[in-house]
Structures are given as structure tokens and as C-alpha cells.
Nucleic acid binder design. Structure first.
Lengths: 109, 109
DNA sequence: TCATTATGTGAGTACATAATCACATAGTCA
DNA sequence: TGACTATGTGATTATGTACTCACATAATGA
């Protein structure tokens, strides 16, 4: 049976997972892997309204995935825990596996 | 600007992230890290209704995180892409980092 | 001070998700 | 066959999330 301690840990982990579980937020993380960026450049890159992007960024900051600092008028965001990028290689493996499964199915025709 | 190809990739990646972005589903993945299990044992471990657990399992199978096979009356689930466990060490790092930040704040009092 | 620019936020709407209950399905064994 | 067990699914309800628009805030520089 699940301990209270573990339940709390899983809760926290789920929050971090939720923070990146959105196409736009994945795009943002991918954009930031090469260095920090301001909101306006992020918004232009992902092709969405600034207010919307701002909200997504706030979610990721709250979860501890990103951090930000002010620089004049701009607010600059960057990855706080770059290990989050490792997740991408895992998803790549998942997708490759799915492709293999589909190939197997097709070859059985 | 985001290419169509990348948008599709990010969509797929977000689906995988979503599939584990829930405390109960994290608990299930954690439970399965030591080996395959049937629905009834999973349900008992996480302490939720079987029908609910069944639905969560279906979501993770659809995303390619888990796979299952029938064995008599039981359906046995296991991790399909164990690299998903790497995500856990990253969340641990995120949480440690958050702890450090809080300590810093407190020491400034 | 005023206009401008970058960012964040409140409110409303639309949509997605989770949990529950009752029921359906499928396999097992007497 | 009929009772039993494990699992999955339809319908419903409650809750959470994403997006948009209008507006608020904050920093800059003429």
C-alpha cells in the first residue's frame, strides 16, 4: 500500500510532468535548450499570443522547470533544470518503439 | 518559427508527458519498475477503484508507456519504455533545487 | 510628464479530464 | 450450463485547463 510520504512525492512529480505536458510548453523548453530568451521572442517562435505564453511560462516557473530574471523592460526565461531535456530522448525512444510496432503489424498483412 | 514537423513531434511528446502527469499514474509507473503486475494488484497498491485504474492504464498504453498481455482472467501490465524512469531522477533534481532555493530564502532572514 | 513597449492578470468561455456508479464482457471452473 | 472473478466501458457529474480579450503594471526614453 502507498505511504503518505510517497503520495506526496508522486503529487510533486506529477506537477512537474504536468508543467511540460503541453505541445506549446514542450516547444518552449526546446527553444530554451540553446539559451535564455525573452517572452516576446518565445511568443513569436511558438506562434501564440503573448498573454497565453506568459501564463504557460508562469506554470513552468511554479513547477521549478524554468527560472526568470528582469532585464530592463524584458523578462528573460531559461531552463532551471536542464535534465528535463533527457525526457525528450525518452519520448523519442517511445515513438521509435511505436513505429516498430506499426511496422510489425504491416509486415503481417 | 516552428515548423509543421516540429509541431507534430511536440504534440506526440506532450501526449507521452500527459500520460504520466498524474499522481496515480506516477504511482503505477513506480510500482511497475520492479516488474509486471495485474490490474487488481495495481488497484490495491494505489488505493483506487479498479475501473478508475483501468482507465488510467489504458491512457498509458495508448501513449506507449505501458504494454499489457492477457493471462487467464488477469491482464498483466508492464513498462514498455523503462527510460520513463529517468524522468523520476530529473524530478528529484527539480525538487532538490527547490529545497535549496527555500533554504537560501530562509538564511536571508 | 506622456507615449511607447514588454509583460502580467481578471473574467469569461469552451473544452478536457478524473472519478464514480452501474452494467457489460470474457475467462475459469464446478 | 451457471456462478464467479477480473477487467473494461457508457453515462454522468465535478473539476481543471487553455485560450482570448480587455485592461493593469512597470520600465524606458523623448
Amino acid at each position: 500500500m502507498l505511504t503518505k510520504k510517497k503520495q506526496l512525492l508522486f503529487q510533486k512529480q506529477a506537477e512537474i510532468a504536468k508543467a511540460i505536458a503541453h505541445p506549446l510548453r514542450i516547444a518552449i523548453v526546446d527553444f530554451l535548450k540553446d539559451g535564455e530568451q525573452c517572452v516576446c521572442d518565445i511568443a513569436e517562435y511558438v506562434g501564440s499570443e503573448r498573454s497565453n505564453v506568459s501564463r504557460h511560462l508562469a506554470v513552468m516557473v511554479k513547477a521549478g522547470v524554468l527560472e526568470c530574471r528582469k532585464e530592463g523592460l524584458k523578462v528573460i526565461y531559461k531552463l532551471k533544470t536542464p535534465c528535463i531535456l533527457d525526457f525528450f530522448s525518452c519520448t523519442a525512444e517511445c515513438l521509435k518503439q511505436q513505429l516498430k510496432d506499426t511496422e510489425k503489424l504491416l509486415s503481417a498483412l
